[in-house]
Design a protein around this nucleic acid. Structure first.
Length: 1049
RNA sequence: GGGCGAUUAGCUCAGUGGUAGAGCACUUCGUUGACAUCGAAGGGGUCACAAGUUCGAACCUUGUAUCGCCCA
């Protein structure tokens, strides 16, 4: 054998062997009917393996290997998700880097070709990386959330079920059931990528911000007495005001204010509620007036207590605006610049003014209004902010304070001898930390925007998902996850599923011109359109300027049918116009007009077209990954895999995607197939560095799992991951720990090298011998105990307990004691004992390999392979089922523990009395009982060897200067009068005695308390009594020993 | 501000009412025929604090402090 395990060489070889033998395939090594299925949380196709993946997949692989060895019909389903925004970004970067035409230059279709190319080339990276960890996914089933979409060349996911069809089918069905709708809502808008993004993709970061204070003058010459009181109700300020004071961190949004809100209980503003005030920006002659309303949202103690309401650009304001029917004016374009569309400001402002004065409005009318003053149009939002502040201040409408106001933030430090400058009057701009939303990929400030999007009406599908957890059908580990889950689901918001991207499942909805004509009069009443009627329809009827009609269908062909049905009621020949697909509405109007013009000339109705255009948006990636459990198994087809593996068993994923993915999978699976997707959800925390900091490129504390694998081997990383995986625990990855577990692997390796050294035959699968030797009986019992411990731990997802049980067994029991104890027998002449011990040792080592395999697959498979003949590779070896009840021999247990205890105590006494390590010493014994004598007789060779004892002599009384070794049933002694320092030996014993006395006090106190005997369980009382007796015996012996030493001193 | 959680040895963390544990680090000793990626021994804890429940509390309850995370 090599000196150590060569992970770098062996891992790829072993993995290849497994893979080529089909060891990971669904159902491999199946010997029973129960299935066990895990769906991999699909890593992002652009992703590279990070420590979180490494952790997460280690746990999954442990469970999978464990079940596979136990003969379950096991499937670990792999795959990747298409990661709309990330992939699009990656490909765009690549285009720039390689000087290719940009996305917009390429156009949608060509760009998507590039994305598919890119996916084919780089999309498999993470798969290869997962393999290096030893992950035994059924790679032949590798799935992809965009599989089957237009242009899919099927590279890297050759056998993936057609996800596209499944996603589209679900969308159409949910749409038909009224669970999906299109509407205007406030969403997180990324001005860089020009798309809506999910909450998950938003990072809230505290930044140094400012809070401006402005005066909104009251309209119509209104004034009021503003009274400020302190806590006791004393008036501290009373003045006549013709304005209301507003604080804001985003002055540019003032342009879109629809109201000013105050708390209904706020007496200061009660006199002016219902009045109008003026937004102090824009050309003076067109300043907009907005109402002062009441709402519970404003906090009277915060700022001035009055809040400006910009419903289209702030989530809180949006709620207030909704409640109060306040118009929500959109101020920015998709790039986050101030709008430049629409009519001149004067015109737009006067429209808004009418609405503020009470005119009825629709959402779309409001959205069409551009309230940006002409000179600010087209400016970036931050430039616009500066301008707005500048103009208001110049106008004298900023709230002023003195320059020494502490709210303005820290002052520049004065140089020595420098005088503080005279306080001047300055605008009140508070320096204030504010939470600002940033796009996690774009790094730009996210703009809440009121836009048209597609939504899942989550409230309608949340019920079953909630019930499943509440009634225990689905269990979330740790339990705290359930609380979080309830909290979120019970307050669920509509789920925005549209994204303004190209890479993704395009929404299966087509729009057409609204040709319905309610007031149309058919002059001849013949159901036919003549030219006069046609002209009237188009121009007077305003057909071309009306809204759109839309149809949702799984394919364009299906959509055609629906549009034809829609059009059936309009006059012929328009009702039979051929439905064609065009790029957008503009194109549609153009084509439609052209075809009508042609008809006017040749009267050929077959050339009439009805152009429709598809919604350009794509679905949120989470919508497709929400279908992961069924989509990967081939749904909607009624596949054998669906029958066998669905519902799946366990989902192992990060806490952070409980809402975004787990809850949505619950909702969607229940909504679509009316079944739970899995019965257990195991949530874990983020993997951090050893100090508990998040790993990030900026901090420079990122640990690359592949580097760890290179340096320590995959097994060491896996064992570390398992050891960290306490339920709900914080995950701190440290190299020291990894080193420790690498060393553990070496320890195991050396146990085999021990067997080789003693030339123990290793012909094939070992059988458990019927042991006669106490030593062998004992270790067989210990093996049974650890098997039960490991199974119990894995059963309850306590990976750390499984790891530490195995670590303690292999190192602390097998290597530290069993192998040492076996030496004299292996070297001895008793052929029968030797053969039995060889067989036991082989068996114990093999069992260790089996039990360790799920956690450390490589080194164990390698060692397993050292035997000449094996029925199966270790990966498919049979997992043991023996129990401690069957195999633990109480007598052997007691005897070996007695031996171990004696050796420990002798060693300890030797070390503390500085007996040279190599020196063999004599041992004396007095008053040994029968059991003790028997134990000694059976094991004296072991004891003498490991405790370095020369001889044993029975004495009636220990000579002076004997170091006492108390054991159960007797007392041993080391006659060390010549060697020991009496003083320090006395000190040592007194220390031991001190501890003992304290312990005795506790035990006696408890037993003396009558209530203890009454209330405590019988066995606890019994245990305490026995314990007390043993401790008292020990105390006696130590006191005697002390007495002897004191004579000497 | 709301919700969830944490606080145990120098460090990282286990420990769901019955004698406080592990790994690492540290100190001392050791080239004893598996293993120095090792062996032997050792030191080290008012279980954050306070009150309560209990025969008994690291564990249950309440409060306090500090620190995380999520949501505003």
């Amino acid at each position: 054998m090599e000196k150590t395990f060569n992970a770098a060489e062996a891992e790829s070889r072993l993995y290849k062997a497994w893979e080529e033998a089909g060891c990971f395939k669904a159902g491999a090594n199946k010997s029973r009917d129960e299935s066990f299925t895990i769906m991999i949380p699909p890593p992002n196709v652009t992703g590279a393996l990070h420590v979180g993946h490494a952790f997460n997949n280690t746990l999954q692989d442990i469970l999978i290997r464990w079940h596979r060895m136990r003969g379950f019909d096991t499937l670990w389903q792999p795959g990747q998700d298409h990661a709309g925004i990330a992939t699009q970004m990656q490909v765009e970067k690549m285009l720039t880097a390689t000087q290719q035409p940009s996305r917009n230059e390429l156009g949608r279709e060509k760009f998507l070709e590039k994305v598919w190319e890119w996916k084919g080339e780089y999309g498999g990276t993470i798969v290869e990386q997962l393999k290096r960890l030893g992950s035994t996914c059924d790679w032949s089933r590798n799935a992809f959330t965009m599989a089957g979409a237009a242009g899919d060349p099927r590279t890297g996911h050759e056998n993936s079920p057609n996800f596209h069809d499944a996603v589209i089918k679900v969308f159409v069905e949910m749409y038909n059931k009224g669970l999906i709708y299109r509407g205007k809502r406030l969403v997180n808008w990324d001005p860089h990528f020009e798309t809506a993004i999910s909450d998950l993709e938003v990072e809230n970061i505290e930044v140094a911000g400012h809070m401006w204070h402005f005066k909104y003058p009251l309209a119509d010459g209104v004034t009021y007495t503003y009274i400020e009181k302190d806590e006791d109700g004393n008036v501290i300020l009373e003045e006549e005001r013709d304005y209301i004071s507003i604080a804001t961190t985003r002055p540019e949004t003032m342009l879109g204010d629809g109201a000013v809100a105050v708390h209904p209980s706020d007496e200061r503003y009660a006199p002016i509620v219902g009045k109008l005030c003026e937004i102090p920006v824009g050309p003076k002659e067109h300043r907009r007036q907005i109402p002062i309303i009441t709402d519970d949202y404003p906090d009277p103690d915060f700022g001035s207590g009055a809040v400006k309401i910009t419903g289209a650009h702030d989530f809180n304001d949006n709620m207030v605006a909704k409640r109060g029917g306040i118009p929500m004016y959109r101020l920015m374009d998709t790039k986050g610049a101030m709008r430049a569309d629409g009519a001149p400001y004067a015109e737009e402002a006067s429209k808004a003014q009418e609405y503020a004065r009470g005119k009825a409005f629709t959402e779309n009318e409001i959205d069409a209004i551009n309230l940006i003053p002409d000179h600010l149009r087209g400016l970036d939002r931050f430039e616009a902010r500066a301008k707005v502040v500048e103009e208001i201040t110049a106008d004298g409408l900023a709230v002023m304070t003195t320059s020494d106001d502490p709210r303005l933030g820290p002052k520049p430090k004065l140089k020595k001898g420098e005088e503080a400058p005279e306080a001047t009057t300055v605008p009140l701009v508070e320096a204030k930390p504010i939470m600002q939303p940033f796009g996690d990929r774009s790094k730009v400030v996210i703009e809440p925007m009121f836009t048209d999007q597609w939504f899942v009406d989550a409230e309608k599908v949340v019920g079953p998902a909630l019930d499943a957890v509440k009634d225990g059908t689905v269990k979330i580990i740790p339990e705290s996850g359930e609380k979080t889950y309830y909290h979120w689901l019970e307050n669920i918001e509509p789920w925005c599923i549209s994204r303004q991207l190209w890479w993704g499942h395009q929404i299966p909805v087509w729009y057409g011109l609204d040709l319905s004509a309610e007031n149309f009069k058919d002059d001849e009443n013949d159901g036919q359109l003549d030219l006069v009627e046609l002209g009237r329809l188009l121009n007077e009827g305003g057909m071309l300027h009306r809204g759109n009609v839309m149809e949702c269908a799984a394919s364009f062909e299906d959509a055609i049918e629906k549009f034809l049905d829609d059009n059936a009621n309009i006059p012929s020949p328009l009702s039979h116009a051929t439905v064609i697909e065009v790029a957008d509405k503009h194109e549609a109007i153009h084509q439609f007009a052209e075809s009508l013009a042609g008809y006017a000339v040749d009267q050929d109705p077959t050339k009439l077209v009805y152009p429709v255009w598809r919604d350009p948006d794509v679905l949120d990636t989470w919508f497709s990954s929400g279908l992961w459990p069924i989509g990967t198994l081939g749904w909607p087809a009624d596949t054998e895999e669906m029958q066998r593996y669905f519902p799946t068993d366990v989902l192992i994923t990060g806490f952070d995607i409980l809402f975004f993915w787990v809850a949505r999978m619950m909702m969607m699976q229940l909504a679509v197939v009316d079944q739970i997707p899995f019965h257990t959800v195991y949530l874990h925390q983020l993997v951090r560095d050893e100090k508990g900091k998040k790993m990030s490129k900026t901090t420079g504390n990122v640990i690359d799992p592949l580097e760890i694998v290179d340096e320590f081997g995959a097994d060491a990383l896996r064992f570390t991951n398992a050891s960290m995986a306490a339920i709900g625990g914080v995950l701190k990855l440290s190299r020291d720990r990894i080193t420790g577990y690498r060393n553990f692997g070496t320890k195991l390796w050396n146990a085999f090298s021990f067997a080789e050294h003693y030339e123990i035959p290793y012909t094939g699968d070992s059988q458990r011998p019927e042991a006669t030797q106490t030593l062998n009986k004992w270790i067989i019992g210990e093996t049974a105990k650890v098997r039960e411990e490991v199974d119990a731990a894995l059963d309850s997802y306590r990976f750390n307990d499984a790891a530490s049980a195995l670590y303690g067994f292999v190192w602390g029991k097998v290597c530290d004691w069993y192998l040492e104890f076996s030496k004299p027998i292996l070297q001895g002449d008793d052929a029968a004992a030797k053969a039995e011990t060889q067989a036991t040792l082989r068996w114990v080592l093999d069992q260790s390999l089996i039990l360790l395999h799920p956690i450390m697959p490589f080194i164990t498979e390698e060692l397993w392979g050292h035997a000449d003949q094996r029925a199966k590779m270790l990966i498919h070896a049979d997992w043991p089922t023996y129990t401690a009840a069957d195999l633990v021999d109480a007598e052997a247990d007691r005897e070996m523990n007695w031996v171990i205890g004696l050796i420990d105590t002798v060693r300890s006494a030797r070390a503390q009395t500085h007996v040279p390590a190599g020196l063999k010493v004599a041992l004396l014994v007095s008053s040994l009982d029968d059991k003790g004598q028997e134990a000694w007789d059976n094991n004296h060779v072991l004891i003498q060897r490991l405790a370095r004892i020369e001889s044993l002599t029975a004495v009636d009384e220990f000579p002076k200067g004997t170091v006492t070794i108390p054991v159960a049933g007797g007392t041993f002694g080391l006659p060390l009068a010549d060697i020991i320092d009496v003083g320090s030996e006395i000190a040592r014993l007194e220390k031991t005695l001190g501890k003992l006395t304290k312990e005795l006090g506790g035990l006696r106190g408890r037993l003396k308390n009558p209530k203890f005997a009454e209330s405590a369980p019988e066995e606890v009382v019994e245990e305490t009594r026995a314990n007390l007796a043993a401790r008292e015996e020990e105390e006696g012996k130590i006191k005697q020993a002390l007495a002897r030493l004191q004579e000497l001193a």
